[in-house]
Amino acid sequence: MNSKILELAVGVFLLAGILALGYLALSVGNMGVTASGETYRVTARFDNIGGLAVKAPVTVAGVRVGRVSEITVDRELYSAVVSMDIDASYDNLPTDTSASILTSGLLGAQYVGLQPGGEIEYLADGDRIELTQSAVVLENLIGQLLFSKTSE
């Protein structure tokens, strides 16, 4: 009888532990979208990426469709090349889609917003987004403001 109680307690313990793991995996974890799901990669060239970082979200109309996977500098043009992994289910982005680096909130993290265009052809793996808008760098903005004020 004693060993039955023991086995029961251990059984409950194991079950609770496995349920906790399962809860974390299913409810908390984002099992689908980007981590294990299929993605395709597009790149975009920006003059200035501001504070954009790898793993930042890529959104369409505010909905997350992928993440930034790599940021490099073009050796000849000295511009930033941002690679993005887009979820394969969003395979209908037109080739004239434009990408801009946006900020969530005034001082929040930066992300890439995609603005779909009107072409019939869709972006595919390895394509480049030609229309880009760089990040708004606050210091530059203030600098411009001061400059225009003094030149008046």
């Binding site: 793991l21 974390l24 995996a25 409810s27 908390v28 974890g29 984002n30 099992m31 980007t34 981590a35 294990s36 997350r64």
Partner: peptide
């Protein structure tokens, strides 16, 4: 926010 920001492999698997 939790569901959006967490990643299965990155966060859960690595923690385990």
């Amino acid at each position: 926010s939790m569901r959006e920001g967490m990643d299965f492999k990155e966060d859960i698997v690595n923690g385990v």
